[in-house]
């Protein structure tokens, strides 16, 4: 695929050998998608959402009731789940849901919590009581812990976390109560539109063939880093907290850059991003672009 694509082009030229995607098949797939969308599955702002098949309906996101009729408030696709009718826009800012894995940047350290920026409508908070303290012990947080918050996360650190709770005004509470969450270092961050990231079971993807680990944050922030060594088992058989990694080698950095480039290409073309498409995009790259000495 062209690495610098334009978002408007439906005709995509795909080059590369050994790729599982053939040029023609991609075109066919795209055209079939176009026809597959029936006319009434898309609505524009101010359109009446057709609900003729139901007597009663529940109003979902993206709609409003005007004079007893359902009117769309965003441009997007209509989704009907039983009686719930909602309109989902194709491009909007990330709105958190419970259990999402996100990657964010710490912007502020305030009394007993960190303020994390998620590229969302509101900022997220990470309470001191929701992080794993170094050493792995589970204990009550003291005033000394509060004074040493910066030794855990500082302003400007990248962290991966999970959404713990949502509040009414849109703000989000996070937690990092698992060893796989925590500070991120030694890699590259790529920001893509949040709608392209599918919500899946596993957001932490390890790709040993390419030598990279990819964390697909649901808020559109994707972290690409060289492969981490498997966590050493402690005395009781539980995985310990990993020691700090050695600096990456040249080949590892090249692999990270290639993967980041593949991500940007997918984002520019507005393709969905999950493991399969990532692998395809990586393998379809033009050889020699990053490997040049």
């Amino acid at each position: 695929m062209q690495l610098a694509g334009q978002p408007q082009a439906p005709n995509i030229i795909i080059r590369g050998s050994g790729s599982s995607l053939a040029a023609a098949s991609v075109q066919e797939r795209l055209e079939s998608q176009y026809e597959a969308f029936s006319e009434d599955s898309f609505v524009c702002v101010g359109d009446i959402v057709p609900t003729d098949m139901q007597e009663g309906f529940l109003r979902g996101h993206g709609t409003q009731v005007v004079d007893g009729q359902l009117m769309a408030t965003v441009c997007g696709r209509v989704e009907r789940i039983n009686k719930l009718v909602s309109v989902r826009p194709l491009r909007n800012r990330y709105s958190a849901e419970l259990g999402d894995v996100v990657v964010g940047r710490v912007t502020d350290v305030a009394g007993k919590r960190w303020i994390v920026d998620l590229n969302a409508r509101q900022e997220a908070t990470l309470q001191l009581s929701s992080v794993n303290l170094p050493g792995g012990v589970q204990r009550r947080r003291t005033a000394e812990d509060e004074l040493n918050m910066r030794s855990v996360f500082e302003e400007g650190d990248l962290i991966s976390a999970e959404v713990q709770a949502l509040h009414q005004d849109g703000s989000v509470s996070l937690h990092t109560r698992s060893l796989k969450y925590g500070k991120l270092a030694g890699g590259q961050l790529v920001t893509v539109p949040a709608n392209l990231i599918k919500r899946q079971k596993h957001h932490f993807n390890t790709l040993p063939d390419m030598g990279v680990d990819v964390i697909l944050g649901c808020n559109g922030m994707v972290w690409v880093a060289p492969n981490a060594p498997p966590p050493a088992l402690g005395a009781d058989g539980e995985p310990e907290q990993a020691p700090p990694r050695p600096p990456a080698t040249r080949e590892q950095r090249a692999a990270v850059c290639r993967m980041a480039g593949a991500l940007r290409a997918l984002a520019a073309l507005y393709f969905p991003i999950f493991q399969a498409t990532l692998v395809d995009a990586y393998q379809a790259r033009k050889p020699g672009l990053v490997d040049a000495a």
Binding site: Q33, C44, G46, C75, R91, N195, Y270, F271, P272, F274
Partner: peptide, 19 residues
């Protein structure tokens, strides 16, 4: 404007797929 918006939304949806 409505026509242009619908066209844009359809093209985005086609590329993104049914996720």
């Amino acid at each position: 404007m409505r026509e242009a918006l619908l066209q844009h939304v359809r093209s985005l949806a086609a590329r993104r797929g049914a996720i």
